[in-house]
């Protein structure tokens, strides 16, 4: 009887609020990965109404005074779910929202955190890059999510990082570092020296096919610089790994190197871009998720980068 009343109540609520009974993000969870560091591991699936753009690994870091969000997620709904997780975890306020780069699965949730005094921090190149893609990104979000996209929006940074920048959460300093063109032209990493924890954004993909939206050669170079750093724990932008640092960078690096090697061979063999796109890197297909969606664009980007060598 009770449960019947409850289910009627839920149905009523769903009717009143206009959402489906099985609301997406019901099981939204964060996991502690280091003292004070919490990660929500996003879905490896493409964006659908069922996941509301919950695709990237996002999270937050708690200090004695403040919380820093690291990527607010792929929609307002995801940003709100993350905000709810923060409230369940700590009573400290969110003072900083760090956006690791301008891709929709990472930034569209920012609207959930906009409030007086909250700094939105990005790479110096973020604003320009995002402004150029804002309209198509909004169109695509609308196309994929329909009404569930409502409220997700472009949020401009209040602080931008040219080289490096530190933020103090109280007893915990985070060092933000802006990288040269790699995954995109506005990649920003977050490092907590006290725990040796590195948030890589999409400079690191696990399981999910890496994406080259910047420079494949630059990407490899940045990975090599990072690999030489002492890091205790690290968080990829997509997927999970238990490999020690820097071994966890190796598979992505190998993929990028294969792209370079086989594209150079295709150019040498006088193959046009379409032929190259059909053949380069296909041996990696079984190694990664979403290969069909992203691999071909990676070859296109690699080909146009290398054809002038």
């Amino acid at each position: 009887m009770l449960s019947r009343v409850r289910s009627i109540a839920i149905l009523m609520w769903a009717w009143v609020s206009g959402v489906a009974v099985a609301a997406p993000l019901d099981d939204f969870a964060v996991e502690p990965v280091a003292p004070g560091h919490y990660v929500h591991f996003g879905s490896l699936d493409e964006r659908t109404p069922a996941n509301v753009g919950d695709q990237a690994n996002i999270g937050f870091v708690v200090g004695e005074q403040c919380v820093a969000v690291i990527d607010p997620g792929g929609s307002l709904a995801v940003g709100k779910a993350l905000a709810a997780s923060i409230r369940r975890t700590t009573d400290k306020p969110v003072c900083f929202v760090v956006i690791t780069h301008f891709h929709p699965d990472h930034f569209f949730g920012a609207a959930a955190f906009v409030a007086p005094g909250v700094q939105i921090i990005t790479h110096d190149g973020y604003r320009r890059a995002l402004n150029q893609r804002a309209r198509p990104y909004l169109n695509a979000l609308q196309r994929d999510l329909g009404d569930l996209a409502r409220g997700s929006d472009i949020v401009q940074p209040t602080v931008t990082v040219k080289a490096s920048h530190t933020i103090d959460l109280g007893g915990r300093i985070l060092r933000l570092e802006a990288w040269p063109v790699a995954h995109t032209d506005n990649d920003l990493t977050v490092f907590d020296e006290s725990t040796g924890t590195l948030w890589l954004g999409d400079l690191l993909f696990h399981q999910h096919t890496p994406v080259v939206d910047g420079s494949v050669l630059g990407f490899i170079k940045v990975l090599d610089t990072l690999a030489a750093r002492p890091v205790s724990r690290y968080i990829p932008g997509h997927g999970r790994t238990t490999l020690p640092w820097p071994d966890g960078l190796a598979q992505e690096r190998a993929y990028l190197q294969l792209l370079v090697r086989e594209t150079r061979a295709a150019l040498k063999a006088r193959k046009g871009i379409e032929e190259a796109v059909d053949s380069v890197g296909q041996s990696e297909a079984s190694q990664w998720s979403n290969f069909e969606s992203f691999h071909r664009r990676n070859v296109t980007a690699t080909y146009t980068e290398l054809e002038w060598e």
Binding site: R128, A129, Q132, R133, R135, P136, Y137, N139, A140, V181, D185, G214, S215, E305
Partner: peptide
């Protein structure tokens, strides 16, 4: 395909 007219043209 969408967004290509405004994509950053000066990655390189």
């Amino acid at each position: 395909a969408a967004g290509g007219c405004s994509a950053p043209g000066d990655r390189f």
